[in-house]
Simulated scan of single mutants.
Amino acid sequence: MKNQFTTKNQSVDKVFTIIEYMSDMRTPLKLLELSKGIGFPSSTTLRLLTSLMDRGYVYQDQETLKYSLTLKFCRIGDSVKSSLNITEIVHSYLLDISNKTGQTAYFAIEQDMMLVYLDTIKGNGFQTITTKRIGHVAPLHAAGIGKLLLLNYSESQLMKLIHSKGLPRFTDNTLCTYESLKMELEKISKQGYAMDDQECEEGIRCIAVPIKDYSGSIIGGISISGSTDQILPEKYEAFLDILISASEAISEKLGYKI
């Protein structure tokens, strides 16, 4: 017998089904369109819509009779966003990643067209990696997480980055031309992860995966870094499984639909 306190409330579940469907459709909907789309009877849909209208979350245009979500959701979203400390959410996952892989784990975001490291957990075989300490910055084009963040860039933004920051060389492996960087980004977009194979520092290899928010935008990334004799090609798949599992869990907490 189910505990009365843990049984799912079907009315609440249906309300959120309506909200999420209206949000996904991105256009005002008539009652029949909405009820058909979510598979609820019109009477049930109308009852729930009326409750949402009474609370100011849904608006009905009196001329078209179509329903829309209101900007009240923006106020709630802004409130949640302002109180959300992403670094705190990520930290426990970095600990788990470092423990499972034995490598140093990182969390970084973009700021002023540079990569900024916000958290790091030292691995068993930790080495001093000069560009990857908390608060330090690294170039987007030469770092695993940085290249993931470049997937957000349009052609004009990418050209602006090159004009403003350049594509400086750090090792023989650094991508220093627009053509090579563009090819790398296309590859990353298809495979869903990025590598820094001795592009920032000789002898250091990195595997990075993205963190996405509710809009699907890449807002940062997590990665592991270690020496080339620690992060070997035959270990990539196992490391990626751990990283992707963590990134999906973090992204889901930020509202991203997997």
Rank of each mutant, 00 (worst) to 15 (best):
L69D: 02
S83I: 05
I204Y: 08
T44A: 13
T228G: 03
S11V: 12
I218M: 08
D96T: 10
Q198M: 11
I188H: 09
T130H: 12
I242D: 08
A142M: 05
N124Q: 05
P41W: 07
V209T: 14
D61A: 04
R205D: 00
E110D: 08
L49V: 09
V209P: 03
S156N: 13
D197V: 02
I76E: 06
Q4F: 12
T7R: 11
G146E: 09
D13E: 15
L46Q: 11
V116Y: 09
A194M: 06
V116K: 13
Y236S: 01
S83C: 09
I145G: 04
T17R: 15
Q230Y: 01
Q62E: 11
Q191Y: 05
T17C: 15
E201T: 01
P168I: 02
L167P: 04
D112R: 12
I258S: 08
D54A: 13
T228R: 03
G39M: 12
S189F: 15
V116C: 12
C176T: 14
H141N: 14
G221R: 06
D112I: 01
I231V: 12
D119R: 07
Q157D: 15
S98I: 04
S11E: 15
I222D: 01
G39Y: 11
Q230V: 00
S68R: 06
Y106E: 00
T45A: 13
D119A: 15
K160W: 07
I244K: 08
N3Q: 11
D112F: 09
A105H: 00
T27A: 15
G39A: 13
S42E: 12
V116G: 06
K235R: 11
K212G: 04
I218C: 06
T44E: 12
N124V: 00
E202H: 02
K36W: 04
Y93L: 02
K132Y: 10
L118D: 02
N152T: 13
I76N: 02
L65Y: 10
I121M: 02
Q198F: 00
T64R: 07
I97Y: 05
K147D: 05
M113V: 00
L167N: 03
G37R: 10
